[in-house]
Design a protein around this nucleic acid. Structure first.
Length: 272
DNA sequence: ACATTGACCTGGGAGC
DNA sequence: TGCTCCCAGGTCAATG
């Protein structure tokens, strides 16, 4: 289940394999993904990949005509670059991109929450990107900003930090973890938290995301990086998926509650 | 305008 | 063993 650190890990793995490669052949399945397949997909042929980037949970391939091929991994998407010699399609393969060096990019996604979109204009003008908030690891995301975003909001703090218009890349796992680290109860109304505590939350979000990036992402069920290797961050999760275990800070028991339809793990003694 | 819920989709695990 | 049910969660449309 890729969040920001997982997509960043994939990007770092793919970058040296893709940079400078020219697209020689493309194929996509006829299954519906989150977005329809580009009708002119074949016109990718002949373009080359200038650089790879990440914005929020989107993986961006900048092409030689200044367009971007955008991948979203959804919940279960995996992108790998393999030798195309003798490569045979496996179940849930949805997109192949062949390169002249006998390598092929393979996008496999069992649940089809992911997508591949070809954006030809400026990214920030595309509806998918137009309303995205700042990157959590960049300077724009700080206590002043979060305090301003939280002001007057009745929604829960967990819902606020998972809102892409407020800040991108914080999914269910890292939201639970950051709220634990900063001692804030996930159900607390966002507008009723002091800016001092929001500063702590910003620090926690950045800390947990940096740690996870350094560990190569979290592996829960599905995530594999571009080498097919799992991430190692799950070994350092404090509360996520640990219902019934003891809080690492106090001796209370970790519980799970539902917030906006998502499981939220917390220590109700440490988090107020 | 803001806040919350449901739909999308499949595989895996629990329970019987 | 095999069946059914439920859950996982990112995003956005629909609803409150």
């Amino acid at each position: 289940m890729p969040e920001l650190p997982e997509v960043e890990t994939v990007k770092r793995g793919l970058s040296p394999l893709l940079q400078g490669q020219t697209i020689e052949q493309v194929w996509h399945s006829h299954h519906n993904m989150r977005h329809p397949w580009p009708e002119d997909f074949d016109e990718l042929i002949g373009l080359s990949i200038v650089s790879t980037h990440r914005r929020a949970k989107y993986l961006l391939l900048q092409l030689s005509d200044d367009s971007h091929l955008v991948f979203h991994l959804g919940m279960t998407g995996v992108i790998r670059v393999l030798s195309c010699e003798g490569y045979q399609l496996v179940k849930h393969d949805h997109c192949l991109i062949h390169f002249p060096n006998q390598q092929v990019l393979v996008f496999n996604d069992p649940r089809r929450f992911g997508s591949v979109v070809w954006v030809k204009g400026p990214l920030e003008a595309h509806p998918m990107f137009a309303r995205l908030g700042p990157e959590p690891l960049e300077n724009e995301f700080d206590a002043t900003y979060l305090t301003q975003q939280a002001k007057g909001k009745k929604t829960t703090i967990k819902s606020l930090i998972m809102n892409n218009q407020v800040v991108v890349g914080v999914g269910n796992i890292y939201a639970s973890e950051a709220l634990f680290l900063s001692g804030i109860h996930p159900h607390r109304p966002a507008g009723r938290i002091s800016s001092r505590r929001l500063q702590g939350l910003v620090d926690s979000i950045q800390h947990v995301l940096k740690q996870a990036v350094d560990a190569g992402g979290t592996t829960l069920k599905d995530f594999r990086n571009s080498d097919g290797q799992p991430g190692y961050f799950q070994q350092t999760l404090n509360v996520y998926g640990r219902e019934g275990e003891k809080c690492p800070r106090c001796e209370a028991t970790i519980s799970v509650v539902k917030t906006c339809g998502r499981s939220t793990f917390l220590c109700s003694k440490c988090q107020r």
